[in-house]
Design a binder for these strands. Structure first.
Lengths: 238, 238
DNA sequence: ACCTGAACACCGTTCAAGT
DNA sequence: ACCTGAACACCGTTCAAGT
């Protein structure tokens, strides 16, 4: 299962986010031509310019000026590369002043998270597993859990509250980015439009009445409003 | 862009879900060896037995007893196949008795939706675009919008409330199925565990204090609890 | 220790031809 | 009208060898 002669096992990423060199002596053997940092930087360029779909090991090797196989000497596989890239993005999240009031503090933190992800929806897929924006973005989670406790929740319920907000956020990004992608590919008139155009008012009266406004209604950005409703429901009444 | 000689354009799916034959005369030409229904049924078998990842055009052709290219004569591309499959699953959603009380009615409808998706998380990805479980599952949306209006929301706000619930549900399924997949592949000790094992209590005191309970806390199923909080926040106070 | 070329076992989709 | 074989332009990853 391990690469012959390669160093397997995830290398710890330091708090400042700089990838540390492996602890081994570097004196012996052939000097490296490419580094992890080079690889991540190249991946970053590709993703920003062409999207994640284009981030293939071959494309990345070309960008680095090497061969696909050289990459496997620095990165276990494509998944590990994505985690590395994630950390790289997480480090770039702005850390704004947040309101003191717990409820508003949670909302503000969630909005920061949302805005970062909305710009790069592909992060959500890579992220969903670990429910955190990489180690360097854990402060957002800390803020939410802490504020939820300050608002009167137990530790357990604070974590569950954070999770509910995380679910809501992931869902919003997922749905809206998928819808955006759909709209981008014009050729197909969207299954949804077709369905809504021929609703039976006897069976689905509300939807039939709303059919012509449906697209407009579901295109409005309601993330913040829904978030506030969720937070209101999660925190003890004031 | 269109298949030479093939019939492009999405064919309407009838309300009973049976795929109607194309309106053209069928008298002339070579008789078909496989039908759309055959293809969808075969796809269904593969997905249930081996997962969506294994649903490739080649694998599907083998299951149908044909060649990959024959499929393209019945289905525009892989995406259309997924929509067809979606409809097929939507038709199978049980339609239980729902409570009369608006708030409980919404919760019950959301739970139906959630349970169906939780069993087949891959549907969410295919679905997210069209924010509906295929035409035959639109009754769930109707129920939610109708109940939200019965609870006192305007039509617009009722749609937005439904959307918030949809986001929350999609997110929950996405996150939890990703986590499940992670847990399934044992070899890698999960980036998260590693990060949580070495938190700095000075910087992230809440998370550090919760570190050893984190996995347990985030494995609990809190969908229903979060859903109730969200619905409480969305509907006017009673 | 680090990098390479060739290969394995796949993808979705198109083209041109056959019945 | 429907189906086929061969091919195009890709994937991630492994193996064995080179420096």
């Amino acid at each position: 299962m391990s690469i012959p002669g390669g160093r397997s096992g995830r290398r710890r990423v330091a708090d400042d986010g700089v990838v540390p060199p492996p602890p081994q002596r570097r004196a012996t053997g052939r000097p490296p031509r490419i580094s992890r940092a080079d690889i991540v930087a190249a991946a970053h360029r590709i993703v920003d310019a062409e999207g994640v779909a284009r981030l293939t090991m071959r494309r990345l090797a070309a960008e680095v000026g090497s061969t696909p196989m050289a990459l496997y000497h620095h990165v276990r596989d494509r998944d590990e590369l994505l985690v590395l890239l994630l950390e790289d993005y997480a480090r770039r999240i702005p850390r704004p002043e947040l309101p003191e009031q717990p409820r508003e503090r949670i909302v503000a933190a969630a909005l920061v998270l949302h805005d970062v992800l909305a710009e790069r929806p592909w992060l959500v897929t890579a992220l969903a597993t670990d429910d955190l924006m990489g180690a360097t973005a854990l402060w957002i989670v800390e803020v939410m859990v802490d504020a939820a406790m300050a608002a009167g929740l137990s530790a357990e319920r604070a974590v569950h509250a954070y999770r509910a907000i995380w679910y809501y956020t992931v869902g919003e990004i997922t749905v809206r980015s998928a819808a955006g992608r759909q709209r981008a590919s014009r050729d197909r008139p969207s299954y949804r439009d077709e369905v809504f155009a021929s609703l039976d008012p006897a069976e689905l009266p509300r939807l039939a009445a709303l059919a012509d406004r449906w697209t407009a209604l579901t295109t409005v950005d309601t993330y913040a409003a829904g978030l506030r409703a969720l937070v209101d429901g999660l925190l003890p009444g004031s």
